[in-house]
Simulated scan of single mutants.
Amino acid sequence: MGINKYVSEVKTIDHNQQIVFNYLSNFENLASYLNSGLIEKITEKVPQIKITDFESDRDSCKFNITGLGLAEIKIVNRDPFKSIKVESSGGLPLSFTFWIQLVPIDEYKTKMRLTLHAEMSMMIKMMAGNKLEEGINQLADTLSKLPYQ
């Protein structure tokens, strides 16, 4: 098992840093957005994987992944208005730690970058490594366009 690092492009969000942080640091905000079609967009690129039974509270979310079982991710650290640290637990063939980093540009704009540290076997890396590289940028793009409020 090796740890692999994937870093997204820096994205600009047209909202205040505090608003962005408060929204992203609460998985309940993401639940309604995910249930409105984002899960289908994420999984359409890999049709053999289906995500079902999505549940969340403020600090964690759980979901079933076809063929893999129950997966859970948890927010394990919030550094107010600067970063959110998320870790996986159970159900996945890899474990990961994921950071959302936020930096203010001005009062109404925020820069965001995602960093993923994934621990996976060489076989999983060969199968998923390029997809993770692509996926981290797609996720950053998606998060930059959420309906922050």
Rank of each mutant, 00 (worst) to 15 (best):
I84R: 03
K109L: 02
V103L: 11
T142L: 09
K41Q: 14
L38F: 11
S32V: 10
I65P: 00
R78H: 06
G91E: 05
S144K: 00
D59V: 04
Q48D: 10
E87R: 10
I49L: 15
A71Q: 05
A71C: 14
S88E: 02
A140N: 00
Y108S: 12
L146Y: 05
T52Q: 11
A31G: 12
T110V: 08
R58I: 12
G37N: 04
N137S: 13
E134Q: 14
I75Q: 07
S89P: 02
F96G: 04
S144C: 06
Q138L: 12
H15D: 13
G129I: 06
K145I: 02
T142H: 10
S56A: 15
E40R: 13
V10C: 07
S36V: 00
L38K: 11
E40F: 06
V20H: 00
L68N: 05
L132F: 15
N22W: 07
E134V: 04
S25Q: 05
G69C: 09
E119G: 10
P147K: 09
D79Q: 07
L38R: 13
I105Q: 13
L102I: 08
R78T: 09
S144N: 06
K62W: 10
Q101G: 05
S25I: 07
T110D: 03
H117Y: 13
N64R: 10
Y108T: 13
P147E: 11
E28F: 04
M122F: 11
F63S: 04
S121F: 03
E55D: 14
N16I: 08
E133T: 08
V103G: 06
Q101E: 11
L68R: 02
G69W: 12
E133M: 03
L34M: 15
L24Y: 01
E28P: 03
S8R: 04
T12A: 04
K74H: 05
G129H: 01
T66P: 01
G2K: 14
S144R: 02
L30F: 10
V46G: 02
E28K: 15
C61P: 01
H117V: 10
I19Y: 01
T43C: 14
N130P: 04
D53F: 03
I124C: 00
E9P: 00
L114N: 04
L102A: 04
S8W: 01
A71W: 06
I39W: 05
